[in-house]
Design a protein around this nucleic acid. Structure first.
Length: 833
RNA sequence: GCCGAGGUGGCGGAACUGGGAGACGCCGCGGACUUAAAAUCCGCUGGCCCGACCGGGCCGUGGGGGUUCGAAUCCCCCCCUCGGCACCA
């Protein structure tokens, strides 16, 4: 990388340092709620203090800062806060490896990263800064936890959970990606553990329904959330076990219409009824061997969809209540205990998985839906009329579903049911560096929530971190031993800590009143600032943070702490920063360090390039040459403005339209078209790349204007046009390159800051054209161009096009069949022969 | 397998709602300035072809078909890339 400083760059180092100091000293971006003004809450996902910011942060915060500064210029009272997602495993791992206390490590990182962010020149209200590891922050989370326990929204249970052997802790389902830990990529194993859960499933339907009411979210994020919630509607009913009165297997199906095609049924190997179905010791041994084999499979093996389905036939048989025929029962690894009832009816004719299993085990296949003529295939899942289905014959699938359910209800053996794929959020972590769970275990009273007035339950400082497994807090006697909040007797504290995703599920609310001490949230401040108008962050949180935050917001609403249903109105998911075709990573050696870049080129250049190289939602291909281009452009702006300072001195007049020369009018139109383009590009979809290219074109026009105007217009006209153009340029550049903009703004003689100036407005009179260029096509190919007066009618345009000499040449030997005129755009002359 | 996004010059990327394909930037080439270089400024820069010059023609947005006066854009089929989900009954 060539980071050498070239000979005459503008003094960005001095300029950036100077303006950052001004912003810091004057608390330039401090805001307060003001009901008289419209608000805009602009938020970027806060960082984990890992040590240094990376290019992904730079991009994220550059995008956010443009939005914040732009909205401020548009007259909004803009809340733009920053803070730290400060609990988490890396701090603890660093402590184990290097012997630094997680608190020390975290705070040092925060100090360093805060300085880095300040060097980027972002317009944060630093008075609202918060760190989630602060007891004054997590105390409120503990309070809410207690209230969630009271309402059954937080509960403790023993269950099979995802265990990351490397992180030595439990993971929520959302934190497992294709069988691996989302953080360390270690293979996740199943483990039976007791832990705390948040009842997110109670909100499954609402979370799903609101996906249709978030038009400001990218469709793919909503799709991922919908898939994750995974609603399926169907029926549950009992299959009586033959010869065992009172014993039945409950199955769930989304296709009750196919019940007549059920030729066998399957239970998950872990199903609790399995034990009672075993006939003798020999079968017991076989079942145990099979279950053990299945249990040995890793999560990853189990997820491979196309491997053979293993099964064990039981001697017990069940009754298909629809056909009243006896069917065999199986245990099979393709049925999961964790979904539905852990048992299914198998309909190989209309379900491919059942078909595969039936083929392997030589089971009968009955078709219950008429196939379209000529259809070839295995299981059929399309539309059709019911056949081989008793009282359902002749019906469509939806009709048959309804009738089958009605029949089950009438017979009292089943009902319609909805299941969700979403599971409750497991929040217990067997690690130290997190918020303590405010629960006490008392021999007499059992599990007792801490009393609110004894909060916060402070995470003790002195702890032995060995990374050996087991919650480190369990070894801290002074923490564990306490008194029971209810009876005052001896009690032991819960030693697991909370998932750090809990802290990030409400930090955006706390920013509204970060020092409020009477409750978690100041209703007035939250009422004014929330919801977040624009949230910006990485797509990787589509079903993690973004789902948890929606859930937590709804919980807080139901606890009476807030009145809003959804936290984020508009969501922008930025693409990754990649280099040489791959995500930046140490192992690939393609990491670009923001510090080096800022030192070499200045923050404005780095910001500008990261916004210019691609639209925000797409991946950004980092290119050192491109950064140099951005730097070149800002130097061009610098030279342009500083070279004209003398000429601009004393010129204040706005150009008087009536007195402008033709060339002056043309130039002024360029200026105002640029305002329009930049504004539209930002407003429409944050297309900063095209906004910046429009500004670049304005600069090119200014360079061309200078020599061209020297002898064609008066000094007064030239001066007025130049001043307007230069001031417009600076104002438009303000959100993108704020330091340079402030410096130049001051140099052209202003005392008020750019960031306080209103956004420029295009002058409609400047935009008006008196002539327009019309493209003339013959048979769809461009053959000529003509200039006509603006507003010329179709007739006039047609006549002029047909009279055009070059068009005439093309029309020889051809007969004009039709002439299409699009006023203001083009003429297409359609010919024959 | 299912869902989603996408495929445009040597590269990153533009193109309103179906109307001049390739804005802007990078790379490259040429010129000016300079003793020279860097920096800077100006110009050229999709491919093929005709032309001495001015100019002009043909092809071209992953491939094939279609709709239309006109398609990067709309419809159908196919190929490829990336992302998500993946035995969820």
């Amino acid at each position: 990388m060539s980071l050498q400083e070239s000979s005459d760059r503008y003094p960005f180092r001095e300029i950036e340092a100077a303006w950052q100091k001004v912003w810091e000293d004057t608390k330039a971006f401090k805001v307060a709620a003001d009901p008289a003004r419209p608000k805009f809450y602009c938020l970027e996902m806060f960082p984990y203090p890992s040590g240094r910011i990376h290019m992904g942060h730079v991009r994220n915060y550059a995008i956010g800062d443009v939005v914040a500064r732009y909205k401020t210029a548009r007259g909004f009272n803009v809340l733009h806060p920053m803070g730290w997602d400060a609990f988490g495993l890396p701090a603890e791992n660093a402590a184990i490896e290097h012997g630094v206390h997680p608190a020390v490590w975290t705070h040092e990182n925060i100090e360093y990263m805060r300085a880095q962010l300040k060097k980027m020149g972002c317009s944060y209200d630093w008075d609202r800064e918060l760190a989630t590891c602060d007891p004054e922050y997590y105390r409120w989370e503990q309070q809410i936890f207690i209230r969630m326990v009271e309402r059954g929204l937080a509960y403790r249970k023993r269950s099979t959970v995802n265990w990351c052997p490397s992180c030595q802790t439990v993971l929520a389902n959302e934190q497992v990606e294709a069988g691996r830990c989302w953080r360390c990529e270690a293979e996740v194993v199943a483990k039976d553990v007791e832990g705390w859960f948040f009842k997110i499933t109670a909100y499954a339907e609402e979370l799903l329904a609101w996906c249709d009411r978030l038009p400001g979210w990218p469709e793919r994020v909503l799709t991922m959330q919908r898939n994750w919630i995974g609603k399926s509607e169907g029926a549950e009913f009992d299959l009586p076990v033959v010869g065992r009165p009172g014993l039945a297997i409950r199955v769930f199906t989304t296709r009750p219409d196919t019940s007549f095609g059920m030729t066998y049924a399957v239970l998950a190997p872990e199903h609790p009824l399995v034990d009672r179905l075993i006939m003798d010791e020999q079968e017991r041994a076989a079942v145990h061997a099979f279950s053990a084999e299945v249990a040995r499979q890793s999560e990853i093996e189990r997820l491979a969809a196309d491997r053979p389905k293993r099964g064990l036939r039981l001697r017990a048989r069940a009754l298909n209540p629809f056909s009243e025929g006896e069917i065999p029962l199986f245990l099979a690894d393709y049925v999961l205990m964790g979904y539905g009832t852990g048992a299914i009816m198998a309909v190989p004719g209309e379900d491919q998985r059942d078909w595969d299993f039936a083929e392997e085990h030589d089971l009968p296949i009955i078709q219950t839906v008429e196939r379209p003529p000529g259809w070839v295939g295995e299981a059929y899942t399309g539309d059709g009329i019911k056949i081989n289905s008793g009282f359902l014959n002749g019906l469509t699938i939806p009709e048959a579903k309804a009738k089958a359910i009605a029949w089950l209800v009438a017979k009292g053996i089943g009902e319609s049911r909805v299941h969700y794929r979403l599971r409750d959020w497991g929040i217990s972590r067997q690690r130290y560096w997190g918020a303590p769970i405010p629960i006490v275990y008392c021999d007499r009273c059992g599990m007792v929530p801490e009393r609110e007035e004894r909060l916060p339950v402070i995470l003790p400082r002195d702890v032995q971190l060995r990374g050996k497994g087991g919650s480190p807090l369990a070894d801290v006697a002074s923490f564990v031993n306490t008194t029971c909040p209810r009876c005052g007797g001896k009690g032991r504290r819960e030693t697991d800590t909370m998932d750090t995703f809990v802290e990030s599920s409400w930090y955006f609310l706390r920013y509204c009143s970060p020092t409020y001490s009477r409750a978690m949230l100041d209703p007035g401040a939250v009422g004014y600032w929330m919801p977040v108008d624009q949230y910006i962050g990485g797509i990787e949180h589509a079903v993690l943070h973004l789902l948890y935050s929606r859930f937590y917001t709804k919980v807080l609403r139901d606890l009476g702490l807030a009145t809003l249903d959804e936290p984020f109105v508009n969501l922008l998911t930025q693409g990754m920063v990649i280099k040489d075709g791959a995500k930046m990573s140490k192992s690939k050696g393609n990491v670009v360090d923001p510090d080096d870049l800022i030192r070499a080129f200045g923050a404005d250049t780095v910001r500008l390039f990261s916004l210019f190289a691609a639209p925000p939602e797409k991946d950004l291909d980092w290119n050192d040459r491109g950064v140099e281009g951005a730097s070149r452009f800002l130097n061009r702006v610098w030279r342009l403005v500083t070279a004209h300072l003398e000429e601009l001195k004393g010129v204040h007049a706005r150009p008087a339209i009536g007195e402008l020369s033709a060339e002056g009018r043309r130039f002024r139109r360029t200026v105002h078209e640029t305002i329009k383009r930049v504004t539209d590009d930002i407003e429409d979809a944050f297309h900063f790349n095209t906004a910046i290219s429009a500004i670049m074109e304005l600069v090119n026009a200014l360079y061309a204007f200078e020599p061209a105007s020297q002898d064609t217009m008066s000094r007064e006209e030239r001066g007025a046009l130049l001043r307007e153009a230069v001031e417009t340029l600076i104002l438009l550049l303000g959100p993108f390159a704020p330091h340079l903009a402030e410096e130049l703004w001051a140099r052209v003689g202003h005392t008020e800051a750019v960031y306080r100036r209103p956004w420029p407005q295009p002058d409609p009179r400047a935009l008006a054209r008196d002539e327009v260029l019309i493209v003339v096509q013959v048979d769809g190919k461009v053959r000529s161009r003509l200039t006509v007066e603006a507003g010329a009618g179709e007739e006039r345009i047609r006549d002029q096009a047909l009279a055009d000499r070059r068009v005439q040449d093309w029309l020889e030997r051809r007969t004009v069949e039709r002439v299409v005129v699009v006023p203001g755009r083009l003429v297409n002359i359609v010919t024959r022969r």
